[in-house]
């Protein structure tokens, strides 16, 4: 695998790992500040995902007096699956943003923002209905 895309007269970029060459090919190194900002955003999503995971586990254990079992388990599993998707999606998004920055392309839209907002509103509505009807 050759890495001779840089124009002549400029310094060769420092060697990168094989995984980095495969998953983040081409382009040029973005401003290091952007790389760090992308990483912090990724970590913020990971913490959100952890909150969903902890919430899912707590919901199942905590609400046995409030919900019938299928609703309880269903909501817990929805939260856990959303936490999983968010963790995986955060890494995917980090990769796509990093690729866009390498190629100086527009940043991708965060597709899971509306998804997360919708699911959050739905969960809150279900809880509200159950609390009111209890």
């Amino acid at each position: 695998m050759t890495n001779s895309e840089h124009p002549p007269g400029t310094a060769a970029p420092p060697p990168r790992g094989r995984l980095a060459e495969r998953l983040l090919p081409g382009g040029e190194e973005p401003d290091p500040r952007f790389t760090l900002a992308n990483e912090r955003t990724f970590l913020a999503w990971i913490r959100t995902s952890l909150a969903l995971l902890a919430g899912g586990i707590a919901l199942e254990a905590f609400t046995s007096g409030l919900f019938i079992e299928p609703v309880r388990k269903g909501l817990a599993i929805i939260l856990l699956l959303m936490g999983m998707m968010l963790s995986g999606g955060a890494a995917m998004r980090w990769l796509r943003v990093e690729r866009s920055m390498r190629n100086k392309a527009p940043l991708p839209l965060p597709f899971f923002v509306p998804l997360l907002a919708g699911a959050g509103a739905l969960t809150a509505a279900v809880v509200l209905v159950f609390v009111l009807l209890r």
Partner: peptide, 18 residues
């Protein structure tokens, strides 16, 4: 250099936890 392995390991931990 983008810290690819740290990102992938952290996300993997989240997926496994879920």
């Amino acid at each position: 250099e983008a810290d690819l392995s740290a990102v992938l390991w952290t996300a993997f931990a989240g997926v496994v936890l879920g």
